[in-house]
Amino acid sequence: MTKQLEKKHSLAVRWLHWISFPLLALMIWSGLLIYWANAIYGFKIFGYELFHFFPTWFYDILGIPLRLAEGISLHFFFMWFFALNGVIYVLYLIFSGEWRAILPVPGSFKRAALVSLHDLHILKKLPPQGKYNDAQRIAYTGVILLGAGSIITGLAIYKPLQLSWLTWILGGYEWARWEHFWVMILFVLFFVVHVIQVLLAGWNNFRSMITGFEVVKTDAVATETMVEEGAKV
């Protein structure tokens, strides 16, 4: 048995990743404090509301009611740090070349479906992949787009006069608010799936986001295959 250490996450990515977590949490939390004051969204089918954002018990458990001013002060404080962290991350991806590991490539959507089937234990074999599989590529690119979307829709409702063109593009003030809300919901869904996947992936993978390194087993079988493949060239 031999092992190899794989450098998975640079120091910058690890810091940016972990800083984004409390910042996103604070933005969502303060956003909820604000949303409560005009909580009008829900899932409606033929005029019948299946689910309202959010049920009373949800607000009560979290102690959300009557904290609009507090929500605004937090939201418009941490927005700068949230946006700055995201911008630095994107710049880092561009200049380090690490965008290569994250951007979807031709065939990514097809292979991402196969990865999902594998994760659901329907398929045995994983499609070939680089550092991240294609489902991860789509998810990680998607969450960057969510970050951009949160800033764009947020600006449209924050400065609907100065940025009236942006608000107009997004369908007006009310639509922009609705879009800002759904960006938040998608962020939460990403978070839930991300945490589940990390739990399933195990300690070695989790540790790599803290130490930067993952221990890779180079077991006998794999080695044999590699030796054979190596022999072919």
């Binding site: 092992k3 190899q4 250490l5 794989e6 990514s108 550092k131 590529r137």
Partner: peptide
């Protein structure tokens, strides 16, 4: 996919 974009991998020497 790593090949398509020319992604680099950072594997250490075997240990």
């Amino acid at each position: 996919t790593a090949y398509i974009l020319g992604e680099k991998s950072g594997l250490s020497a075997p240990l």
